[in-house]
């Protein structure tokens, strides 16, 4: 009888452990997939900004915000940081609700401008406000 009670306790504890693991692991798996997709999007926006050779022209914050806002997928908050490494100059813009993001991923790209002898690093962070 004792053995049966012990077996029952083991089963209940195992099920409890499985439940807790599932509750904590599954959102993480889902979150990891979401993060992966966001990171791919952020990397591509950063790369396309570098590829377009537009960075030397985008020195106005509003213009940078407009261009990145036009390229970013819908329902994505963003923060963009452009750094001129040679001249030690930085421009950062972000959407008003960026601070509320619960999930964000960053992509980085670099562009060397031979005309102005500058090296630009563009860091694009895309975020989403998830949950209720």
């Amino acid at each position: 009888m004792r053995a049966l009670e012990l077996a029952l306790m083991v089963v209940v504890v195992a099920l409890l452990y499985a439940t807790l693991s599932a509750v904590s692991v599954m959102p993480k798996l889902s979150l990891r997939n979401d993060y992966f997709l966001l990171r791919e999007e952020a990397r591509s926006v950063a790369a396309i900004l570098a590829e377009s050779r537009a960075l030397p022209k985008l020195r106005d914050p509003e213009l940078l915000r407009t261009v990145v806002g036009a390229l970013a997928p819908p329902n994505r908050e963003f923060r963009v940081e452009v750094v001129d490494v040679v001249r030690n100059w930085t421009l950062t813009v972000e959407t008003p609700n960026f601070g509320d993001c619960t999930l964000a991923a960053t992509g980085v790209a670099m562009y060397s401008d031979p005309r102005s002898s500058s090296i630009y690093v563009v860091r694009v962070t895309l975020g989403r406000i998830t949950g209720g």
Partner: peptide, 27 residues
Amino acid sequence: ILLIASVYAYHIQSTSLLVVETRHEVV
């Protein structure tokens, strides 16, 4: 034991696993 197992099985089948699996295909 059967009661507890059936409750958990229903919970896992109906919610989380489906979400993870759909996303997984894209990734």
